[in-house]
Amino acid sequence: MNSFCLAATAFILLFCLSSRRVDAVEHGKNIIDIHCHTAGIGAGGSGCFVSPALQNSWKYRIYLKAFGVTEKELQKEGDSLILRRLSEKLAASQRVAAAVILAMDGVVNDAGELDTARTEIYIPNEFLAREVRRYPNLMFGASVNPYRRDAIQRLEKVADGGAVLVKWLPSIQHIDPADKRLVPFYLKLKELGLPLLTHTGEESSFTRTRDELGDPERLRLPLSLGVTVIAAHAASNGRNCGERNHDRFLRLSQEYPNLYADISALTQMNRLGHLLRLLNHKELHERLLYGTDMPLLKTGIVSPYAFLFRLPPAKLLAITGIENPWDRDVALKEALGVDDVIFTNVAALIRMPARIAKLISSKSNGGRQ
Rank of each mutant, 00 (worst) to 15 (best):
Ile62Ala: 11
Ile62His: 11
Leu64Thr: 10
Phe67Cys: 03
Gly68Pro: 00
Gly68Met: 01
Gly68His: 03
Glu71Pro: 01
Lys72Met: 08
Lys72Ser: 05
Lys72Leu: 10
Glu73Leu: 03
Glu73Phe: 06
Leu74Pro: 09
Gln75Asn: 13
Lys76Thr: 05
Glu77Thr: 11
Glu77Arg: 12
Glu77Lys: 06
Gly78His: 01
Ser80Phe: 01
Ser80Thr: 02
Ser80Met: 01
Leu81Gly: 00
Ile82Gln: 10
Ile82Trp: 10
Leu83Gly: 02
Arg84Tyr: 12
Arg84Lys: 15
Arg84Thr: 15
Arg84Val: 10
Arg84Ser: 15
Arg85Ala: 13
Arg85His: 14
Arg85Trp: 09
Leu86Arg: 10
Glu88Asp: 10
Lys89His: 09
Leu90Ile: 03
Leu90Phe: 05
Leu90Tyr: 06
Leu90Ser: 04
Ala91Ser: 08
Ala91Cys: 05
Ala92Tyr: 08
Ala92Trp: 00
Ser93Glu: 07
Ser93Ala: 13
Gln94Asp: 14
Val96Ile: 15
Val96Lys: 11
Val96Leu: 15
Ala97Ser: 15
Ala97Trp: 10
Ala98Ser: 15
Ala99Trp: 09
Ala99Lys: 13
Ala99Pro: 14
Val100Ile: 14
Val100Gln: 07
Val100Met: 03
Val100Glu: 04
Ile101Lys: 07
Ile101His: 07
Leu102Lys: 01
Leu102Cys: 00
Leu102Glu: 07
Asp105Leu: 03
Asp105Thr: 05
Val108Ala: 01
Asp110Trp: 08
Asp110Ile: 06
Asp110Leu: 10
Asp110Pro: 08
Glu113Arg: 08
Glu113His: 07
Leu114Met: 07
Asp115Trp: 04
Thr116Ile: 09
Thr116Ser: 05
Ala117Asn: 09
Ala117Pro: 02
Ala117His: 12
Arg118Asp: 14
Arg118Tyr: 11
Glu120His: 00
Glu120Ser: 01
Glu120Cys: 02
Glu120Gly: 00
Ile121Met: 04
Ile121Arg: 03
Ile121Lys: 01
Tyr122Arg: 07
Ile123Val: 06
Pro124Met: 14
Pro124Arg: 13
Glu126Asn: 09
Glu126Val: 10
Glu126Tyr: 05
Glu126Leu: 11
Phe127Ile: 00
Phe127Leu: 02
Phe127His: 00
Phe127Gln: 00
Leu128Ser: 12
Ala129Met: 09
Ala129Trp: 08
Ala129Gly: 12
Ala129Phe: 13
Arg130Phe: 05
Arg130Asn: 12
Glu131Pro: 03
Glu131Ser: 02
Val132Glu: 08
Val132Arg: 07
Val132Ile: 07
Arg133Phe: 11
Arg133Thr: 11
Arg133Asn: 08
Arg134Ile: 12
Tyr135Pro: 14
Tyr135Arg: 13
Pro136Met: 14
Pro136Asn: 13
Leu138Ala: 08
Leu138Trp: 03
Leu138Lys: 09
Met139Asn: 03
Met139Trp: 06
Phe140Glu: 13
Phe140Arg: 11
Gly141Pro: 12
Gly141Glu: 06
Ala142Tyr: 00
Ala142Gln: 02
Ala142Asp: 00
Ser143Phe: 01
Val144Arg: 06
Val144Gly: 05
Val144Glu: 07
Asn145Glu: 01
Pro146Lys: 14
Pro146Cys: 14
Pro146Thr: 10
Tyr147Met: 06
Tyr147Asp: 08
Arg148Trp: 05
Arg149His: 06
Asp150Glu: 13
Asp150Met: 12
Asp150Tyr: 14
